[in-house]
Design a protein around this nucleic acid. Sequence first.
DNA 1: AGTTTTAGTCTATGACGTACGCTCATCAGC
DNA 2: GCTGATGAGCGTACGTCATAGACTAAAACT
Lengths: 280, 280
Amino acid sequence: MSTDKTPEQPELPPAVRRLWGIDAPRRRGPKPALSTARIVQAAMDVADTEGLPAVSMARVAEALGYTPMSLYRHVANKDELLLLMVDAVADDPPEIPDEAGWREGLELWTRAQIDVGVRRPWMLELPLSSAPPGPHRVRWMDQAFKALRTIDLPADEKLAMIGLLAQHVLGEARVQVESHRAAVQQVLRDSGLPASTPESELDPAAVEAANPWADLEALLVRSAGPGGYPHLFAAFSTWDATASTPPDDEISFGIRILLDGVETYLRRRGALPDEQPDEG
Amino acid sequence: MSTDKTPEQPELPPAVRRLWGIDAPRRRGPKPALSTARIVQAAMDVADTEGLPAVSMARVAEALGYTPMSLYRHVANKDELLLLMVDAVADDPPEIPDEAGWREGLELWTRAQIDVGVRRPWMLELPLSSAPPGPHRVRWMDQAFKALRTIDLPADEKLAMIGLLAQHVLGEARVQVESHRAAVQQVLRDSGLPASTPESELDPAAVEAANPWADLEALLVRSAGPGGYPHLFAAFSTWDATASTPPDDEISFGIRILLDGVETYLRRRGALPDEQPDEG
DNA sequence: AGTTTTAGTCTATGACGTACGCTCATCAGC
DNA sequence: GCTGATGAGCGTACGTCATAGACTAAAACT
């Protein structure tokens, strides 16, 4: 009924088509100076240098030397721009070595992803899973399946495991970023410096040593007393505060527990290649 | 040096003092009609019924029958309001039964928390861990420590475990909420209904059955081919799509893997009360 | 050459957060 | 009771935001 000039499938929503870069090149009109890709790149630059809140249509357009409205030729609206950033931020995943076992591979994959989140903290504030994945995210997924290639399990179970890890990645990166931010804030406050001081001028050791629980501790002891939170008090009454875990260890802690759980699961399902199942 | 009229410690930042409700009552001036608590409550009502984006100072003030500017007497700014919501949303945690073992207790705790996130999806869009916890969040923590009371481990290790679970909770609730939203969107699109249709008019079975991967699948097969994503293709080539896991099972899947990992950890540390450690 | 399609611009609108100054109710001390 | 300080809520105003709609001008097909 409608005019079918393109042989491509037109059923896909435009956001998805833009995400995967499948669009027949335009045939008429002026040559585009801008492009979706350049806009996304500019938006990411702004986010990198000024933070996600600074990413406004106006700011991105300014960075490109165009007017705000010009962006709307290449991007449906701001939400779609953010959505495109979600995929673009996950540039290329690390190649899982062919020799790597499943556990080694998954750990590499997970650490690499946490790293992306820590490097680009604004990524964690984006609506990450609400959108269909783009080519970059699918590449990450592909590598995760490579890590699991020797495991004999249906794809949907592997997918669930990868999803669990991906979820953990987001949470872990967020904790890392936010506890770092809190530490910076605290050092700023304690040293009486203005809030605009760049982090680079701070003593890294002081940031490392900052204890974000100090306020809470004082509060609990003085204002609440052990009455309200008996188990918390019981646990902390015998605590040696001098031996606190540095953040890097926290990442290892989470990964280890998670992968131990996965291993238990695989063993129970009899899916490990080089071992006997517990039952069967 | 400064005028010390109040015997309370004035070092705590005002946001924290507001969070814990410790503020000497005012002695002069008109009686406050508004209060921080009422404002936070109104903001949560708006978020519940209209979503987090609808929570603006103007909208909250309107709900209370006041002007926008009046709110600023009780709340420093919008960010602080959101921060107060973060604590208020976690009303009371479930009481961990005295008879419950550590695993049972943690599972109860985790499920309850996922439930809160699913019931109040806007909670997941708030800056959750960037702020010091308030009294409600500390109650949750207290209950988590209750679940772990029979475990013989230093407090910071217990804390790390609880943090891991709390992280998982956030991720899991987010996935639940977003996949549900995506399913609703897809049903709306497929049935050609306007986007404003309330979810209550939709067929729950259709929402349940919606497959958010449909677009992606078509895309991969047609547009990308197996060349780009070999391992993904290999995994899915032998996949029975009819047996997909319902969302409730996904929650159990995650919890089980996580708690299995925790159990392995506890066993390795020799911290389980009713069992022998692996090494002695 | 004429027609059609499209890229980027201009202008305008309504919502937002919030700085600043005002009015007047309330209470401490007389 | 009177009075003056204090603080609650309001009105106005400003700058920023996303984005609708009409416009101009460029490119390519006819």
